[in-house]
Design a protein around this nucleic acid. Structure first.
Lengths: 253, 253
DNA sequence: CGCAAATTTGAACGTAGTCAACAAGTGTGG
DNA sequence: CCACACTTGTTGACTACGTTCAAATTTGCG
């Protein structure tokens, strides 16, 4: 994909790529999705796209980079809710609430495509099958959240860290097929802690322990999943982007 | 509402009641929702409507009673994901996955209305505004889950128990306006623990502590929220059924 | 190269878990 | 109507996982 500048229009749609992996999209559907990604905005690492309790006039499709959503509690601690990858739709919840329930923040330099509420609303009415697919992805996200809920409620620190590593790798592979066992995780241990409900100090100990047990390797900011089977076992991990049944989807328009 | 027997057809729709609180439904929309609740099934306390990893051929609307969804981890522990109240739609996730990611279980004697995938799919295509509303409720549920994720990841045992009590009361009040400060919680301390990621023993201590501090009262299976303000403060609680903006919804058909 | 951020490690502490015993309900069948 | 069994709730003593605090070390960036 060519490198593009602020505001440049490029063909293609990350969202269409993601949805297109699940169903064969019609030309009308593709062009409707492309329209959502007509505009683009480049944002820097650390930039906040939308702040908790502020109102968000726009939705976004993440086209490039890694982002996260989080909430701050009033003791100042942070809970990272979700990592966001290219093709993910951002800010649906900011649309249904007057004040956003979460902050959207870039973990690397990113490219996002903003579109407004009306465009989203129109998409839902004009393309019932896409509406259903958006509901499907909303449910996948919901189930992924319940997995994490169970992890925080009922599993050990080591299991949570292992689950995060597996999930991150799998989701990164979604957009970069060259990733296999090793990858740059692009998160600080502080961030891993805020995602898993642990302190940075304890995350460090758990990573070390996973390394000593031969489950992972580490070096120069990269992690290698050495014994994936054992990791998945330690983590109770299920890939929620597999095992889908979309046979019930309505006809495309 | 008259007491009805197995298979009896009654007018009205719990789902329409819930959605109707947010928008003015058209007659066509109402009748489409009523069609989902044509059949009813009575289930006993403790009955399992759908088991994790089994395939669910149907969706349901909960019409009466209290249910929960949970997952079991392979060490045998349980994480309760969500409590389900009248008007809630159950089993959407069992529709998009070949195997259900969660178990649905009745906490009291319940009445549910089963409908099939085709009926749901048809609803989405025939009524774009209802499709959007279902997406809205899916997002509310998602945000409620992120609140709980933050609670499990970053708050104390006492805060989690307080949050559960507040949430339960608020949701019960959704269907029974007579409930104010006192209510029968209908959960064992074991269940409260499985929802909050604690042990039953520790839940007991936290309830006692909340009682000793004068935040709640307890007696004969009922809980009274004495100092609601202090409870909400202790719990970081936000009611996610408030503060909605649905002005962007598409036109009704 | 120099500084700030991130990682690493150790020691002490505390929240919540575990185990165990008992009490109080709850429902069932005699 | 009571006796019995079983579930649920209550309490105490002990344990352990993860946190906190502090300091040293490494990394990465301007």
């Amino acid at each position: 994909m060519p490198r593009v500048g602020e505001g440049t229009i490029v063909s293609g749609s990350c969202l269409a790529d993601v949805l297109g992996e699940r169903v064969e999209l019609t030309p009308a559907e593709k062009s409707a999705l492309e329209r959502l990604e007509e505009r683009q905005r480049h944002i820097r690492r650390g930039a906040i796209l939308l702040r908790e309790n502020e109102s968000g006039g726009e939705l976004f499709v993440l086209r490039k980079g890694l982002m996260m959503s989080y909430v701050l509690l009033d003791d100042g601690s942070r809970q990272i809710l979700r990592f966001l990858f290219p093709g993910d739709m951002l800010g649906i919840s900011s649309m249904i609430y007057r004040e956003s329930p979460e902050t959207l923040c870039a973990l690397s330099d990113c490219v996002v495509c903003p579109f407004d509420h009306a465009a989203f609303s129109e998409l839902l009415t004009e393309h019932p099958r896409l509406a259903a697919l958006i509901l499907v992805f909303s449910q996948i996200e919901r189930v992924a959240l319940t997995d994490r809920l169970a992890a925080l409620g009922r599993t050990s620190a080591k299991a949570r860290v292992a689950a995060l590593l597996l999930d991150l790798r799998n989701r990164l592979r979604g957009t970069d097929k060259s990733i296999d066992k090793a990858f740059a995780l692009g998160l600080t241990q502080e961030e891993i802690g805020d995602a898993t409900g642990l302190t940075a100090v304890h995350v460090n100990r758990m990573l070390r322990q996973l390394e000593e047990e031969g489950l992972i390797g580490r070096g120069s900011g990269r992690v290698t999943l050495i014994d994936e089977r054992a990791l998945a076992r330690a983590a109770n991990y299920v890939d929620r982007y597999e095992g889908l049944d979309l046979s019930w989807l309505p006809k495309a328009r």
